[in-house]
Design a protein around this nucleic acid. Sequence first.
DNA 1: CTGTTAGCGCGTTCAA
DNA 2: TTGAACGCGCTAACAG
Lengths: 333, 333
Amino acid sequence: MATINDIAKLAKVSKATVSKVINQHPGVKEETKKKVLRIMKQNNYWPNSVARSLSTHKSYTIGIFDPGRLNNFFFREVFEGIERVCGDKGYDILYFTDKKWDGSWVDFGYTEISKNRSVDGVIMMGFGRVETSKFDALLASDMPTVFIDLDLVGKNASYVTSDNFNGAKTAVRYLCQLGHEKIAMITGPNGFKVARERFSGFQSVLDEFEISYNPDWVFYCQYQLEAGYEAMKKILKMREKPTAIFAEDILAIGAIRAIRDHGFSVPEDFSIIGFDDIELSEHYDLTTIRQDKYMLGVSAAELVLKIINKKNSAPVILKTGLVKRATCRRITG
Amino acid sequence: MATINDIAKLAKVSKATVSKVINQHPGVKEETKKKVLRIMKQNNYWPNSVARSLSTHKSYTIGIFDPGRLNNFFFREVFEGIERVCGDKGYDILYFTDKKWDGSWVDFGYTEISKNRSVDGVIMMGFGRVETSKFDALLASDMPTVFIDLDLVGKNASYVTSDNFNGAKTAVRYLCQLGHEKIAMITGPNGFKVARERFSGFQSVLDEFEISYNPDWVFYCQYQLEAGYEAMKKILKMREKPTAIFAEDILAIGAIRAIRDHGFSVPEDFSIIGFDDIELSEHYDLTTIRQDKYMLGVSAAELVLKIINKKNSAPVILKTGLVKRATCRRITG
DNA sequence: CTGTTAGCGCGTTCAA
DNA sequence: TTGAACGCGCTAACAG
């Protein structure tokens, strides 16, 4: 690979001059500029980005921390949005792997890892739990940071999220309007921020419709199909059963499978409404609340670039929408 | 962030000594080593990887080119395997985004992009078409490279793939053994290497069972559910219909949906066998040939690391397996 | 065993 | 308008 020195010699100028044309600095005679550019083309030269990073402290790279390893129906779509924006702006993506040998990310610190690799900013996704202390250093640092679905702000940190509270309200309200008064909720771990917000929306609508809240009909579980399945099995064993269930998509799908496996059907016996609208949901004809995952990624990337460029860093909250499919029906009191 | 100089001063040694303890070079007195290590800990110091890359020409980073942008049921799982191995070995992953502004990857060249970013090796995935010319430069270069599902070898290049030919044979043979003699195939674009191999396997078994080959029952289409749906619609309109269909999973699922939408059922009216065993397949209870996608990723990452370390670089071909579920039935001649 | 010195490839003053 | 010289943080001979 040719270096800036090679080009300088071939063009019979100093490397400083070459550097100036590369970076489009003014103060280079048009003639020599042309010449340098030509030599660069001829030698298929492109400045080495590592050396450049070392001296500019800028890498045109966005780091991503993602404990879910993309093994998740949700964040895969988010990733697409991030990729699109980064590509358009000339950034590549550094996906931080989870190193076993150094005690993993948390022990070493997100800030250190990011600075060490000289990424220009980081996106934190898939950290659902509400234990913000491990992010303290990052929030206090000057590393441009954007959290997805965790409303943390800091010196150079902000977040993007869907409007979980209102999305949940839309879901439950829809159920109520169809005549349901006995509504269960199967949701994520109690420690998860998004799960809490959705639960708040759920309760809020119950109040609104003056429906009494039954704690036996609320299930907290891991975000896995099997967990939704098990929760539904418990519901099926109750003497007093709900007529409708609100659950995040993957859990809703688990519930649907449990219902079918036990000889019941959807929506005849139970109405189900989801939250997320993951790809799988369409295959189950699941009525659900759609989160625009691609836009979540786009927004996160755009926001981190804004912070990098010292523009505003206001959090972004995305609207959700009701997607009516076939798992909810009207019931008559 | 502390630098090696800061540590050297604090420890009252030269930075060369610090460098030696960092890199675990022999020839440092145990005592000074302890001291340096202690100072490093105290100052939360970790060597800057960019500077280190500049002087060592090694970055502990594996690059990935993936035109499918992970927006694909298949490569998402592959990615997990890559991530696992890279993480265990201390490598991060640089995901090359598709830049619009520089004429995209192909115009600028995979080799240049890789060298420019100083990645230690690259994995090429999701390049299905058989147009190998655009890889010529990469194959001739000394950049350690591993292709997934494209049997290209070069100076420092090799590949991993599933045994598509034998996998396809297993699938079709299973159908034949169930008594099917009228078998259609819905497959990917004719230009795709994996599609060709599977088609060869298909034909091979037809010969083996002395079944005449009917070209009207072979459909080439994009790897999209809708394409499988449309192909099946055509089959449904034929007067002489096959009794079984062999198709890659996403196409098989499209076919199943078409069959159901038109009032027929699986496997009563048509037996369907897939290839891939993507996540979605289980939800359709699709009998299929499983590719170990996670292992494909693991193997690719291990192979590229071997090449980097000048070990052997023999191609890896992974076995496939038959996963019996509910979409195939025995028929009586 | 330890320190000095010279790069790695590029950006950026500051003179000329 | 151009170039010499220094610095980014670290590694790698080579001396001492």
